[in-house]
Amino acid sequence: MGKKIAGWIISGLMIAFNLFDAAMKFIQPKPVADAFVRTGWPIDLSVTLGVILLASTLLYAIPKTSVLGAILLTGYLGGAVATNLRLHNPLFSNTLFPVYFGILVWVGLWLREPRLKSVFPFLS
């Protein structure tokens, strides 16, 4: 039971962060607009990215679709790694941050979803 609670706590933090990030992509405050300029992404894609992140996060939050959500979030985070790498951002602080985040997404899911133990038996 303790693993499941820990999994929901980790997942809850990931969900909260993603919901906040998606909301900022809809609202587009100055720091978000500045980040889009810095990364070379057109600001008109902000809402599209927000919708993708929101949909993936909601799928992750629902137990029956959580694995699909984790897979979609992994793809989304891979795009963030590619963007940071292309910009020659610092490796361990910026470029790999989405990887750390993705690991937490999967750890949270692994702890709360017993079916994943058969997919990742080496973690048991």
Rank of each mutant, 00 (worst) to 15 (best):
M24P: 08
N18K: 03
Y60V: 05
A22H: 08
P42S: 02
S11L: 07
F20S: 15
G108A: 06
S11D: 04
L111N: 00
A23G: 05
L96E: 09
V67A: 09
P29H: 03
V67I: 11
S46Q: 11
V67W: 00
W8F: 13
G7L: 09
F97M: 15
S46R: 06
L59Q: 05
E113D: 12
A82L: 13
A6W: 07
I27N: 10
L54C: 11
S56M: 09
Y60S: 00
S66P: 07
L54P: 02
F97Y: 11
Y60Q: 02
I9G: 09
W41R: 06
M24Q: 05
F36V: 02
V107W: 01
L19W: 14
P63A: 07
L91K: 08
Y100R: 11
N94P: 03
L53C: 08
A33N: 08
R86V: 01
L58P: 06
A35N: 01
K64A: 06
I103R: 08
D34S: 08
L58Q: 07
A61I: 04
V51Y: 04
T39K: 10
Y60A: 00
G75N: 14
T57F: 11
G69P: 10
T74P: 04
P31L: 12
V107D: 07
P63M: 05
V99I: 05
A33Y: 11
N84W: 10
A35G: 03
D21F: 13
A16T: 08
F17R: 07
L59C: 09
S11C: 03
G78P: 03
S11P: 03
L58F: 01
T57C: 13
I9L: 06
L73Q: 00
K3D: 14
I62W: 10
L45G: 04
P98C: 03
I71Y: 09
L111G: 07
F101N: 05
L13E: 01
W110Y: 02
L59H: 00
W110H: 14
G7T: 13
L72K: 04
Q28H: 10
N94F: 13
V107L: 07
R86G: 08
V107A: 15
K30S: 14
P31E: 12
G12E: 14
